[in-house]
Structure formats: C-alpha cells, structure tokens
Nucleic acid binder design. Structure first.
Lengths: 129, 129
DNA sequence: TGCGTATTTCGACATTCGTCGATGTGCTGT
DNA sequence: ACAGCACATCGACGAATGTCGAAATACGCA
C-alpha cells in the first residue's frame, strides 16, 4: 500500500544527511530538536526493539531477513510491529527480495545518535570528575 | 523519604562502572543486556526529558538547579517527575544544597550509551556498501 | 516560631504502548 | 490454478506513560 512512511529524522537537507543536533552537553537543545531526537531514542527504548536492531546491525553483511531475527520471545506480528516502528524512526530500512524482507541499519542515523551522546569539550570543570 | 532508588544501570562491579554492553553492531545483545540498555534509551525517549538532560549537561559547571531548567513548557511537578525518571535511569544524580536541588549528569553512563552506538569494525562486507 | 520559597509527592485522568490471535497480502513452487 | 511459506495489517486488550492541580515536605530567614 505504499505507506512506507520514511519519516526522515535527519533533515535530509542537501548533501544527504545532517547531524540533527550538536552533542547534548554543548548547548541545551531546542524543543524542536528534542522532538526529533527523542523519537530516535524512544525507538531504542524497548528491549525487544533494541534486540531486533542489534540483531540486524550485527548480522552478516549488515542486513537480515525477518526470519533470521524473529527469535526474541514475542509473536511474529509483534516482531513485525517493532520493525515497523524502527523503520518509521528512520533507524532501519527494508527491502523485499523474493520471499523474504531484508532489514538494514541506516548508518548515518546511528552516527547522529552517537554524536548526541559524545562528550565534547567539557566546561573545564567536568574534567575534574 | 529515602526511596532514592539509584537503580544502577551499569552494573557497578568493582572498578566503579562497567560499559554494560558492546556496540550494538558487534554482536546481538542478550535479552538481559537489552533490558538494561533500553531503560537508558527510554529515559531519553521523551522530548521534555531530553531537553532537561541537555540543559543539565550543557549548564555551567555540569550541574544545574531545578529552577535553572524548569522552563520547558510543562508544569513544575511534571519537571520534577521527569528529573526523577532520569535519576532512576542512572543518567542524573541530585544533591540538595541549601534551598535548591542540583542535578548533574553521570558521565560514565553517557559514555556507555555512546559506546553502544559506536560503529565498530564492520563485518567486512559492510564496507562494500 | 512562623512565613515564604523551592521541590517533591499524591491522586486522577486521557493517551500511548506492547502484545496477541485472526486475517490479509505477496511471492514461490508444484 | 492452487497450496504453502514469509511477512504485514487489523482489532482488541491491559499496562504503562505524561500531564496536571492540590497538598506535603524541606530550608532559610525574620
């Protein structure tokens, strides 16, 4: 039905992808930035989704079909539901290849989230910890 | 009343803190690890909490009293509620100093989350992308 | 001691979320 | 054409979440 809903969390401005936000400790993020970033964190804020995401990310070739990662202790519809959520959050992309559907991680989004959590030049005092 | 509920997300084994988990793409994380890590991501999965966390992290000296960061568009009890959630998740610590309560980020937890999102040596085939 | 300010706790409420079984859709092979 | 497998969608349900106003607690100060 084509409701793919890419929902680009990173404003794909021109060059492709954009880091969304500076590190969290660099300056207080705005309400708008928070809305965007929170959606990414929320997507990883469920144990089942986190396992599915990790399973895809760690799978050989950086991609995996649903059948390869369905063993997470919940029903098949639930797996499908979570994969959809991850896709809507922009963390995964999917592609049908014959009978199977393959998911792979969106590397730029992963990098953007990592950057958010990067501790940049501390306020000097932080180093004393 | 003392129900501080530290809830150490990082198993403070011996040396103080422990990275909780390897990068998500290194190997599929276990159900147990996912439970722990998801709690951290979930804590940042709300826009208001993310703004509060960022406000504390970016504040001068790495700490801030509630009054300094309460301007996020929700009521003051709600701010307190979210700060409590962040504290329970191990992302923030609090300390009362006179009239005010100061919050500061737990740097090791931030680092642990960053490590989770770090893209380590791809499975070799991933480089072909 | 008593007042005012700062922060937390306490219900209460509507909304969202995770889960399931049943059903639908897409593709393959016979 | 049809049966079978892989995956997605639908509808329903209880549980968790975010929010608020009201009240409680903690401190500093007059």
């Amino acid at each position: 039905m084509s409701n793919a809903k890419p929902l680009p969390l990173l404003d794909s401005t021109a060059d492709g992808v954009v880091p969304c936000c500076p590190p969290l400790n660099e300056r207080p993020i705005t309400a708008e930035e928070a809305e965007t970033a929170a959606r990414m964190f929320k997507a990883l804020g469920d144990p089942v989704r986190l396992r599915l995401f990790s399973a895809v990310a760690a799978h050989e070739g950086g991609e995996a079909c649903v059948c390869d990662i369905s063993d997470v202790g919940v029903s098949q519809p639930t797996v499908s539901h979570h994969l959809k959520k991850l896709k809507e959050a922009g963390l995964l992309t999917s592609e049908r290849r014959g009978t199977w559907v393959y998911y792979r991680v969106e590397p730029s989004v992963l990098a953007a989230m990592g950057r958010l959590l990067t501790t940049t030049a501390p306020t000097a005092r932080a180093a004393a910890v």
